[in-house]
């Protein structure tokens, strides 16, 4: 397969990954600054909470899009997938922290009630909980140590994506156009992932599993 690598000299590539973390966290930092200096409108906490939620969805979509982009278009962004996945986790964690601390003012009782009673919050919490083991094992040591189980573990991302889409779609009074687009993209990416192993098993002996694990470790 013809692979188009980014036009960055090899020695700058690790730096470009770090740059992605910085650029990726900038929207949260900037919006936090706007909120802290009273420039986030009439309902700053809700605005910040929803902002972090929508960016979680964006990074989730970007993470899921890395494989199809390579396989269908030949764009190789594999070295950024870990950063994108971790940014998804960081944004989900910040989204939860703002809900817990700024919105519900640490009222644990109210939060527990919300989680138990409301399906859309349940889906969100389940997604966040499943992101934790993925984030914890997002390092070369875990990939070597866990081997094949690492790949199985990280397939959880499909279920996480479904939880994220449900949480997002059920959270509003009506679905707006933006939600249709985001949820549609997630569904398409989930379908692609579930279709791919079947397509792949028809072509025998490609040693993809080993290649993939090594690519992720790079």
């Amino acid at each position: 397969m013809a692979e188009l690598s980014l036009a960055i000299p090899k020695r700058w590539q690790p730096a470009s990954v770090w740059l992605l973390y910085v650029v990726g966290l900038a929207p949260a930092a900037w919006t936090f600054y706007l909120g802290a200096t009273d420039q986030l409108g009439a309902d700053p906490v809700k605005t910040f909470e929803l902002f972090l939620g929508i960016w979680t969805i964006r990074f989730l979509i970007a993470t899921l899009a890395v494989s199809p982009a390579r396989e269908l278009l030949g764009w190789n962004y594999l070295r950024y997938r870990r950063a994108l996945g971790l940014l998804t986790f960081y944004y989900a964690l910040m989204h939860f922290a703002v809900y817990m601390v700024l919105d519900q003012a640490m009222d644990i009782h109210a939060v527990i009630n919300d989680v138990l009673k409301r399906p859309f919050i349940m889906f969100g919490m389940a997604g966040l909980a499943m992101l934790i083991p993925l984030a914890v094992t997002s390092n070369n040591f875990s990939i070597r140590r866990l081997g094949k189980s690492w790949i199985w573990l990280h397939r959880l991302v499909t279920i996480i994506a479904a939880c994220g889409a449900l949480h997002f779609a059920l959270s509003t009074k009506i679905l707006d156009l933006e939600q249709y687009i985001y949820v549609g993209l997630i569904i398409a990416l989930i379908l692609y992932r579930s279709w791919r192993p079947i397509a792949r098993s028809r072509k025998k002996g490609q040693g993809r599993t080993r290649n993939r694990a090594m690519a992720s470790a790079s």
Binding site: G35, A36, D38, V45, F48, D103, R118, L170
Partner: peptide, 20 residues
């Protein structure tokens, strides 16, 4: 409400970013 509690409310304009 099916998706949230109606027991309390956020008073707009009064709550800052930190002292919700």
């Amino acid at each position: 409400h099916p998706r949230w509690s109606q027991a309390s409310e956020r008073r707009i304009g009064e709550s800052g970013f930190f002292g919700a």
